[in-house]
């Protein structure tokens, strides 16, 4: 097999673009899950963000406003989820699935009339000096703003969880809401904020699909990206840096299998298409096997209902 025909520079550049939607959605969901809430509605929030972002960008002519709208509407959808699960104490798994169903319908309704419309293009932001470095410049420093923003978000979330008091509180709520409540923290309010942050990130991820990666609006265009984002969170064992690894690995496999086809390397296509999923599972198994049986990694209070009984 001759792999020399695969160009590493374009591979890396393409995988960064391909991974950004799931990266954004996954880092948001990580924060949600860290607070002890599982929101399976990522797909629904993403697709809502994809259409509202698209509508916003088309209406204003500015992708920046598009992304803003997407983040707001994602947060709005998340608020609905939060209200049901946190105030009305509904089951998180079922509510999340319902949110996905609702979001798919809502987006399809909002999107009528936006098919075939061409959105304003999101400019590429060549980072001065760095983008001029041969090879590395094109690989890493010649993308649009959202790619960098997603990377900055990873670092911010990592730092927030690791070094700040807010991060400590968030984790405490996620590990034991009763203890956190006893210490005087507003469990529900903290969780609501986390949930809405997650929704905003999912909305951004969706808008990145409809405004940059594709870019167009089409019904059901997220095509399962939200579910992949959820899987990446578990894959990453709730560690921000591993979200980056997981998302880029997944995006990389997706792009690589297409590149292998273009390069006419004789590998069975139908099995190659499965590769991103199978390899994600395998890596996950290796990682969990290495950690040993005692390790869980999930926030202890995940999916558990909190109700202050006093």
């Amino acid at each position: 097999m001759d792999l020399s025909s695969i160009d590493l520079v374009t591979l890396v550049a393409a995988l960064m673009v391909a991974s950004t939607p799931i990266l954004l959605a996954a880092i948001g969901e990580l924060v949600v899950e860290k607070s002890g809430v599982l929101n399976l509605g990522v797909e629904g929030m993403m697709i809502t963000g994809a259409i509202t972002g698209f509508m916003g960008a088309v209406a204003t002519g500015s992708p920046v406003f598009g992304f803003l709208f997407a983040a707001l509407s994602g947060a709005g959808m998340a608020f609905l989820f939060g209200f049901l699960t946190q105030y009305l104490l509904s089951n998180q798994v079922a509510t999340g699935l319902a949110l996905t169903l609702f979001g798919l319908g809502l987006s399809s309704m909002l999107g009528q009339g936006y098919q075939g419309v061409r959105p304003p293009s999101t400019p590429r932001l060549d980072i001065p000096v760095l983008s001029d470095i041969p090879v590395l410049g094109q690989m890493f420093f010649s993308h649009d703003l959202m790619v960098y923003l997603s990377l900055v978000l990873i670092v911010l979330v990592w730092a927030l969880l690791k070094f700040t008091r807010a991060g400590l509180i968030l984790r405490a709520v996620g590990e034991s809401h009763d203890a956190a409540h006893a210490l005087g923290f507003k469990v529900v309010r903290i969780r609501m904020l986390a949930i809405m942050f997650g929704g905003a990130c999912a909305g951004l991820g969706g808008a990145y699909l409809s405004l940059v990666r594709v870019p167009q609006w089409a019904d059901g265009m997220t095509a399962g990206a939200g579910w992949i984002a959820l899987a990446i969170v578990v894959f990453a064992s709730w560690k921000p840096v591993w979200i980056l690894v997981g998302a880029y690995l997944f995006g990389g496999m997706t792009v690589l299998q297409l590149k292998l086809q273009v390069a006419n390397i004789p590998v069975p296509v139908e099995y190659l298409s499965m590769a991103p999923f199978v390899i994600t599972i395998l890596v996950m198994v290796v990682v969990s096997a290495l950690r040993g049986p005692g390790f869980v990694g999930a926030p202890a209070a995940l999916t558990k209902v909190f109700h202050a009984s006093n």
Partner: peptide, 10 residues
């Protein structure tokens, strides 16, 4: 659309 975009890019 996303997969088609990736294919076109490749």
């Amino acid at each position: 659309p996303a997969k088609e975009a990736d294919a076109a890019q490749a």
